Every structure is written in structure tokens, then in C-alpha cells.
Simulated scan of single mutants.
Amino acid sequence: MNTGKTVFAQLQDHLPLHQFRRCVKRYGGNYKVQSFTCLDQYLCLFFAQLTYRESLRDITTCLLGMQNKLYHMGIRGTIARSTLADANEKRDWRIYQDFAHILIHHARELYSKDSFGVTLQETVYALDSTTIDLCLALFPWAKFRTHKGAVKMHTLLDLRGNIPSFIAITNGKVHDVNILDLLVVESGSFYIMDRGYVDFDRLYAIHQARGFFVIRGKSNLSFRRLYSHSVDKSIGIQCDQTIKLTGKDTAVYYPEPLRRIKYSDPETGKIYVFLTNNLDLAPKVIADLYKSRWQIELFFKWIKQHLRIKAFYGTSENAVKTQIWTAISVYVLIALVKKRLNLDITLYTFLQILSVSVFEKVDILQLVTNSAGTIEDTHTCNQLNLFDL
């Protein structure tokens, strides 16, 4: 029941603020701070992501225009552009990283029973990265190419609910495969990757940790066929083989047998070759698992189109990482609220409604009921249907 709270304040009710304060204390975020606390900073950036503000001046102008509602929105400090800029530059970005991970933990618990299109009890992750282009003159620390800067957001996405379980933000020069060294492999879980992650030394480490991987094979792979299994070619499976690597280095890096599956997509006719260390699942299930990897591409498209991570409010590494982690926490919080309120709308539609209603004093459930039917959902089916269950 609505008790006169703004929509923005109602969203805050779903934030574990006691855990946020622990994150702040862990890194001394409020040390010598008199008026504009880390929570004030976070809420300002949260507002900016929710309403897609374009600059620090845009953020402060909009908030100061609603000065009489700021206290009820949880913002206690004095808002000024310079104050917010200083906070973004100086306050440790790991505060917002740790808090995002707390929200991720809660969200994964809520979505743990959801289906992702493949009938499987084990947890399935998709691993990939997206590049965020930056101007090298303004962001000299973000090395990428001679005249171009960039950061990479390496993401391990839990396909049950499309919740990121691991994110690493690096400069653009870091190769995707290096992120495999940072993963803590969960026994029995599946890791779905594209050809950029083919490194048999690292894949063998996943195997030894009792995890499973499904990855696209490269055309120049040297191997010896040990056994061919019978297949049903009517469903697109061309072959299902047990192989042994014979390359000079690969045979040393991965000494055990692998499974090689060739699959022809009935819709496009394109041929795919998959490598996996799982010897038990049906070959069609392996193909379907790789197909589900597309969800991470949709995740990257969604956050780039609907959250503020392509234009930044500051130029330092600390400010950029603070903004990205705030954007991730907004994404996860909206997914949390949607699940907790059992809303039967897409995440895109939910964000649209919230973005124009943050100052309204109306219950979110009532707001969605009154608004969802009148907002035209203009997103395309291959981009923004992450939560269209």
C-alpha cells in the first residue's frame, strides 16, 4: 500500500542500505565528509541512470528543480555540480562494485528457478565482453589503440534471469581469454563461450575444477577422432565425435579426450562446430546451450541503449568505474523489483514507466497497472526482451 512515498523512495525500499553502509565503511568512503555522503552520491547517480541524465549539470539542475522532494527521496546532502564531480573522482569505486555484487546475489536467488529455454538443472553461464569506446585525449589511462581509448566490460551472465554474476572492467587492450584466469569455477556448472576464449590450457583448468564448457571450435584445430557416435541428422546434428587433440602444444595443454559436435542450423543453414568436455548430454542440448549464449549479447545491447555507460560524467578511471557499477546496480535493482512485485511486463517497459514517474507519489503496482497498457512497447524482439517471460 502506498504511504505517500515517491516512486524513487519506493525503489529505495528494495535496496539493502545497511549493507551499502558496510561497503562505505570498508573503504572509508565518508571519511572527513560533512554534508554530501556516499549515499547521497549513489542516489544522485541512481537518479541519473534511471532518468537518463546527460551530464553533471543536467543531474543537479533536475534535482534542484525538485528541492522540496529531495529529503523524501533520501538525499540529505547539499547538491552541487562541483561536489558531485569531486565525489565521482575521489570516492573509491569499489564501494559501488561491492554493493552491486550484493544486489546481484539477491537477484540470482530470486531468479534461480527460472527457465532459460534449455531443460537443465545445472547453472549455465555465458561469458563475453563488450567494448565501450572513449576519447584517448580525455581518458589517457584507457589504452586501446594508437589514437583510440576504450574500456572493456567482461561479463559472466547467469542465464537464469540474465543476471551478471561476475564483471571485470579493464582497459581495451586486455584480451578476453585472460579473464578466464579470474573466474572461480563452480563444480557442475556450464560455461558457454565463443571462439575468442579458445585456450586449451585455461579450458583444461575449468575441466580440472569439474566445470563444463561449451565453446566454438576453430577451423584449424588439429585432432584425431577416437569414436563417432550415432546422430539424428534430421535435427541438424551432423556428427558427434570423441576426439584427442594432436597439436604440438594443444596435446600437452589438454591431454584428455574432448567431444566435437558439428551442427547445421535449420533456420540459417550455417554450420557450427562445438567443443565440450561434457560427454553425457545429448548433442542437440549442447547446440541449444550455445544458442542460449545470445542472451549475453542482448544484455549488452540493453544496458548500452537504456543506461548511461557510453557517455561519462567524469574522465578519471575512478569516475568511469563508479558510473558503470552504478548502472549495473540499477539494472539489477529493476530486475529485483520486477520479480518481487511479479510484474508481467518487459524490463524495458518497466524502466520507461519509472523514468517519467520518479517524483510521483503513487504505488508502483498501481502505476504499472495504469501505465503499462498505454505505453507502446517499441523494442524489437531480438534486442530488449530479456525479461519478457
Rank of each mutant, 00 (worst) to 15 (best):
residue 91 R to M: 06
residue 378 T to W: 13
residue 183 L to N: 04
residue 369 T to E: 15
residue 375 I to C: 09
residue 262 K to G: 06
residue 128 D to K: 10
residue 98 D to Y: 07
residue 49 Q to K: 06
residue 387 F to N: 13
residue 214 V to R: 02
residue 62 C to K: 12
residue 351 L to I: 12
residue 310 K to S: 14
residue 157 L to Q: 05
residue 257 P to V: 05
residue 359 F to S: 06
residue 180 L to W: 04
residue 45 L to Q: 10
residue 169 I to C: 06
residue 344 D to N: 14
residue 130 T to V: 12
residue 112 S to V: 01
residue 254 Y to M: 02
residue 167 I to W: 04
residue 192 I to S: 00
residue 51 T to K: 06
residue 50 L to R: 08
residue 382 N to K: 12
residue 349 T to G: 01
residue 100 A to F: 08
residue 1 M to F: 12
residue 196 G to F: 09
residue 293 R to Y: 08
residue 97 Q to G: 01
residue 111 Y to T: 13
residue 185 V to F: 13
residue 37 T to W: 01
residue 20 F to T: 03
residue 323 Q to P: 03
residue 287 A to T: 08
residue 286 I to L: 05
residue 5 K to E: 15
residue 361 K to F: 00
residue 180 L to H: 02
residue 236 G to P: 10
residue 306 H to K: 03
residue 272 Y to R: 06
residue 243 I to A: 04
residue 241 Q to R: 13
residue 6 T to R: 11
residue 309 I to F: 08
residue 271 I to T: 13
residue 378 T to Q: 12
residue 228 S to M: 03
residue 301 K to R: 14
residue 340 R to K: 15
residue 148 K to S: 14
residue 36 F to Y: 15
residue 7 V to L: 09
residue 73 M to D: 08
residue 162 N to E: 00
residue 205 A to W: 02
residue 49 Q to W: 03
residue 52 Y to I: 06
residue 379 H to Q: 14
residue 153 M to W: 01
residue 117 G to N: 10
residue 87 A to Q: 04
residue 270 K to L: 12
residue 163 I to R: 03
residue 161 G to R: 02
residue 182 L to M: 14
residue 271 I to C: 05
residue 388 D to F: 07
residue 233 K to L: 04
residue 382 N to V: 02
residue 350 F to C: 03
residue 112 S to W: 01
residue 25 K to F: 11
residue 18 H to C: 00
residue 387 F to K: 14
residue 343 L to H: 10
residue 233 K to V: 11
residue 69 K to H: 09
residue 228 S to D: 13
residue 342 N to D: 13
residue 242 T to D: 13
residue 153 M to R: 01
residue 101 H to T: 01
residue 203 L to T: 09
residue 54 E to C: 01
residue 58 D to T: 02
residue 202 R to F: 03
residue 233 K to F: 03
residue 159 L to Q: 00
residue 53 R to A: 14
residue 78 T to S: 15
